[in-house]
Nucleic acid binder design. Structure first.
Length: 644
DNA sequence: TTTAGGG
DNA sequence: CCCTAAA
């Protein structure tokens, strides 16, 4: 006789298991990788090898000074000088200095790239501090100003070790901009759309994605170029603090689960797929904060380019912890402020730009990889970056004030000056750096699913006028509310007959379509960037606990779907996983001393019931397991007996 | 999808 | 609260 567990099946329900599942511990967790993981790994390997080839190439090339290895970045530095003479439409002078890493195989060549300034911006210099493997990469700036604007002069004449000024290593990459080169300085930056040469995407259209990642490894900023992709938006986000990084380094420390974000699953169920990506990519767990930070530190290694040679005796480091996070940590790393006469000379060191991750098909050539990287850089920089100015940690909004009015006329303000890189206004109509919360964002969590991948930047375009009905929601918490955009499943089901709900969904989808088909402007809100990736924390109320306890008493542990349906069917924000988790914590809470408990106190009688139910159902489960064991062994005996 | 369990 | 293996 074989006692079999009755399978729960059927499309419209399930049968309560007569015998509970085996304990979790007996469910062996298999470490075997799945097929897609393998393929991801293959892709990684391929990319790594590609990058490796690039590295070799760059190292052996006479025009190469920089390696892609992150560890080699530390010695790289860059200085942007800008003379603020007439201010506007002045060419920016970009100077890249290799700081002379002793380990560097620098060949001491000079490379000059000339570019025109970001004429549409005021006092703006953007330094691309990409570790360039060759001059072509550096010319990612090229597309910013037009095809012919970028003049590359390479002369590899200098000798290694020869000092140039304060520099130990003469290897330099100069970017100057003689106006004679092109269009005498009133060249506008290309708008964020359509500024890229279309043919530059040829060859990897339809199977190439750009991924913009920030410090929290939020990979969800994935973009696919497809034929439908008419408007190409830069993968830009305020919160990025990284500089450009090589593909190889990028993939190096990436976990598989994160890499899954590269999957393009948007072919169907757009919202769901996006949410999937959110789940995969946006995880931020305060309980894992330490881990996350460790990871961040690790991955940040070699990414931050510091320049500590001194053209200026005064430099200031704006750490993101000091007020920049409000605007986005996408900021100038070091700024020097030199005062000379009535003029002000800024020496901006190491403006950081967001890190980009590029993905190319396995069949990609090295050249394609290079091009892809270049396009990523171009897209980023060409996407309407604007500059914010911080004085004493506060953003200066009035562009019409003079520097001295702003308080920048004296050297003593040096330490209070900062710059930030921000998306251009044409990209993000709603100011990202608003100090006041955006109130147009719906906060009604009871009507909207939290499992939305809607990005805040999307929110800025889709103000959904819903009322906040949930007192638990913090009005000021605009970021977290951004995840509340998708109608709750129950609403969706009801939406079949309800045009209003329907249209609401349509708005979201169409917006997602227009946005996500091209580059999804990466979500960014100035505040609480990290926490925003999680669902809103909603502590269980005593009432909820009571309902949970009652439900568990009735149906037992291990049937959380039943518990959900029984007592939390209308609580859309409580999933059965939530209930299970809450029960777990309740059991724990009940078994510790009251002094160790935190949060809203749960009445002791409830906790007693928790323990009681827990004990009861545990025994119940053990009994069932026991029966199961007996049955199994009996079966085996019978079988073995019969087989003899 | 649901459950179980680890983080 | 998140993630994910396993069922």
């Amino acid at each position: 006789m074989v006692v079999k567990r009755k399978l729960s099946c059927g499309s419209n329900g399930f049968d309560f298991p007569k015998i509970p599942k085996a304990p979790r511990s007996s469910r062996r967790k298999v470490s075997a990788k799945r097929a897609d993981d393998d393929s991801q790994i293959c892709a990684i390997d391929l990319l790594a090898s590609l990058a490796g080839k690039l590295l070799e190439e760059s190292e052996s090339s006479s025009t190469s000074t920089y390696a892609f290895e992150g560890d080699n970045l530390d010695h790289l530095g860059g200085v942007v000088k800008q003379e603020l003479e007439d201010g506007y439409n002045k060419p920016c002078k970009f100077e890249f200095f290799d700081q002379g890493n002793p380990a560097s195989k620098s060949t001491s060549e000079n490379t000059s790239v000339t570019c025109l300034p970001f004429s549409s911006l005021e006092n703006d210099c953007i330094l691309e501090q990409t570790p360039v493997s060759d001059c072509k990469t550096a010319c990612g700036l090229k597309s910013l100003v037009g095809e012919e604007t970028c003049v590359v002069n390479e002369d590899a004449g200098s000798e290694q070790g020869k000092a140039t000024g304060a520099l130990k290593d003469p290897s330099q990459l100069h970017l100057q901009s003689p106006e004679s080169v092109h269009l005498n300085g009133d060249v506008k930056l290309p708008p964020c759309t359509d500024q890229l040469p279309n043919d530059s995407f040829e060859g990897y259209r339809n199977h190439s994605k750009l991924v913009c990642r920030d410090d929290d490894e939020n990979y969800c900023k994935y973009y696919k170029f497809s034929d439908k992709c008419k408007s190409y938006r830069p993968p830009f986000r305020v919160g990025n603090r990284r500089i450009m990084q090589s593909v190889m380094t990028k993939y190096g420390g990436r976990s598989i689960s994160k890499l899954k974000c590269f999957e393009d699953t948007r072919t169907d169920g757009r919202l769901k797929a996006l949410y999937r990506k959110r789940k995969l990519c946006y995880g931020y767990n305060p309980w894992k904060r330490e881990t996350v930070h460790k990871k961040r530190r690790l991955s940040a290694k070699g990414l931050v380019v510091n320049y500590d040679g001194g053209l200026s005796s005064e430099s200031v480091s704006n750490s993101p912890e000091k007020g920049e996070s409000e605007i986005g940590d996408f900021s100038a790393a070091k700024i020097s402020f030199l005062s000379k006469d009535s003029r002000v000379k800024f020496s901006i060191k190491s403006l950081r730009i967001p890190e980009l991750v590029v993905e190319v098909p396995e069949t990609a050539t090295v050249g394609l990889l290079k091009r892809t990287v270049k396009e990523a850089v171009t897209a980023l920089l060409g996407g309407g970056i604007s500059i914010g100015v911080l004085v004493q940690g506060k953003k200066v909004r009035d562009d019409n004030n003079t520097l001295s009015q702003t308080g920048l006329s004296c050297r003593e303000n040096l330490g209070n000056l900062g710059f930030t890189l921000e998306p251009g206004l044409e990209t993000l109509p709603v100011p990202l750096c608003s100090e006041t919360p955006v109130v147009s964002v719906p906060t009604d969590s009871t009507k909207l699913s939290e499992r939305s991948a809607a990005s805040p930047s999307l929110d800025t375009r889709i103000p959904i006028p819903l009322q906040d009905k949930d007192p638990l929601i913090n009005l000021g918490n605009s970021v977290e509310n951004n995840h509340e955009l998708v109608p709750h499943p129950s609403d969706i089901s009801a939406a079949d007959e309800q045009p209003s709900s329907d249209s609401r969904a349509l708005v979201l989808v169409s917006a997602l379509e227009s946005e996500a088909l091209a580059l999804f402007p990466v979500n960014e809100k100035p505040k609480r960037t990290e926490l925003s990736q999680r669902r809103t924390r909603r502590p269980f109320s005593v009432t909820e606990v009571e309902a949970l306890v009652r439900a568990v008493e009735e149906v037992g542990t291990g049937r959380w779907r039943d518990v959900k349906l029984r007592s939390f069917e209308n609580a859309s924000h409580r999933t059965y996983v939530d209930l299970k988790d809450k029960w777990k914590t309740l059991v724990h809470t009940a078994s510790i001393s009251p002094q160790q408990r935190r949060g809203e106190p749960v009445p002791q009688d409830l906790l007693d019931r928790v323990l009681g139910a827990h004990r009861f159902w545990s025994q119940h489960q053990m009994k069932q397991n026991g029966k199961h064991q007996v049955a199994t062994s009996t079966t085996m005996v019978v079988e073995s007996g019969s087989s003899v």
